[in-house]
């Protein structure tokens, strides 16, 4: 166990020293602050909690930014270390390859968590002081968003490991990571939208569509957060369909966790075959 923690600690240390934590925090903070300032403008006065309005837009921001940051953090984890020759000694030590991956996962998860907590936390604090009717509900919504964003990020970190373990060059791993991001958060949604437009009354819209949302961890994350905010009028994007789901939208949060387990399991299997 102390070996796993040593690996995690090293990743956190590197993440802080190479300014990864700071960079990711600033990116999240700047975008979040923009949304906060827009949301608290005069036009943004609605019946709902001021912070809740902000959280609704932050949830959509998370879907794009958090997986990107997570993949950028993880694509280098194995391919890059093999490239630079730093993984050999770790794999020659008595630590199992599964432990190596778990240690890295904990470390990268903490790096991402720090960035999300700082970026959204500070932006949320600004929203709290600027907003209208801000109450406990808004703070709870923000807290939920932060926790689920970290979970979403952890999922994409695990998926990034699969990419990183499957190829030998860092460059290839990076290209693979970008492709995963593009598919999961852009192309997948576009394809679903296309499907909805062509068969708005058919089998696709009524039966398949909600489950297809559930399959993609990023969409499932948005479905969950929108449902949890409990403000149908505020929902945006594809998740607006959440009202007519054939299942409790709250269970959507299971999807990222399932993908997290799949990602970690698959990358461990691949890493076991890697010859450093």
């Amino acid at each position: 166990m102390s070996a796993v923690l040593a690996i995690a600690q090293t990743e956190i240390r590197i993440g802080i020293r190479n300014r990864w934590v700071m960079l990711a925090s600033v990116i999240l903070f700047v975008f979040a602050l923009l949304l906060v300032l827009l949301g608290s403008g005069p036009g943004g006065a609605t019946r709902a909690d001021g912070l809740t309005v902000v959280v609704a837009s932050l949830a959509t921001l998370s879907v794009y930014l958090v997986p990107l940051i997570a993949l950028l953090l993880s694509f280098d984890a194995i391919a890059g270390e093999i490239d630079r020759g730093t993984l050999q000694l770790t794999l020659a030590s008595p630590v199992s390859r599964g432990q190596v991956l778990i240690g890295k996962f904990i470390g990268h998860g903490c790096v991402l968590a720090l960035a999300v907590i700082f970026g959204y936390g500070v932006a949320g604090a600004v929203g709290y002081f600027l907003g209208h009717n801000v109450g406990l509900d808004g703070i709870i919504d923000l807290g939920r968003l932060i926790v689920t964003s970290i979970a979403l990020g952890a999922t994409f970190i695990a998926i990034g490991y699969v990419a990183s373990a499957s190829v030998r060059q860092t460059g290839t791993a990076a290209a693979l990571a970008v492709a995963i991001w593009l598919f999961a958060v852009v192309l997948y949604d576009l394809a679903l939208l296309g499907g909805l437009i062509t068969s708005s009354d058919g089998l696709f819209a009524k039966v398949l569509f909600p489950y297809l949302l559930l399959v993609n961890p990023a969409d499932a994350f948005r479905v969950f957060n929108m449902a949890a905010i409990d403000a149908g009028g505020l929902s945006t994007g594809l998740a607006a369909q959440g009202n007519s789901m054939p299942f409790q939208p709250h269970i959507a949060i299971v999807s990222p966790f399932i993908w997290m387990v799949i990602g970690l399991g698959l990358s461990t299997l691949i890493l076991r075959r890697v010859q450093p």
Binding site: S2, A3, L5, A6, I7, S93, P94, V95
Partner: peptide, 8 residues
């Protein structure tokens, strides 16, 4: 110290 921890 990292490798010391890995090796116990």
């Amino acid at each position: 110290s990292y490798y010391a921890k890995l090796k116990g």
